[in-house]
């Protein structure tokens, strides 16, 4: 069984986890064209190499980030999402933009 080191629960069977795709920065919703927004929502880069992905430990519903090499399928490191998302990000409304 493949082992995933969960930042909250420690090493666990990979069957306890669900992967939710790569971590992508959200563009400003009100200043982004349809094509770029669709790209953000639907498309993935499918990088061959090291990627950052969202993973969830299902028994605890705990979401975290894992760095994984998609070529060797090695999990390099995992950490809480708070290490990346350190501050609240507010977006301006559609009519408030310059």
């Amino acid at each position: 069984m493949k082992i995933m080191p969960c930042p909250l629960n420690g090493p666990r069977n990979i069957s306890e986890f669900a992967c939710s795709g790569e971590v992508a920065e959200m563009p400003e919703p009100n200043r982004t064209g349809d094509e770029d927004w669709a790209d953000f929502i639907w498309m993935s880069n499918n990088t061959a190499g090291v990627v950052r992905e969202w993973w969830c430990h299902v028994p605890t519903n705990y979401w975290f980030i894992a760095e994984r090499d998609t070529v060797t399928d090695e999990i390099l490191k995992t950490y809480p999402a708070g290490k990346v998302f350190t501050a609240r990000r507010d977006f301006q409304g559609r009519d408030e933009g310059p």
Binding site: N9, R12, H57, P59
Partner: peptide, 12 residues
């Protein structure tokens, strides 16, 4: 505490 899978169901 272990929050894990027991007999294939999530358990505490």
């Amino acid at each position: 505490i272990a929050q894990t899978s027991v007999a294939r169901v999530s358990a505490i």
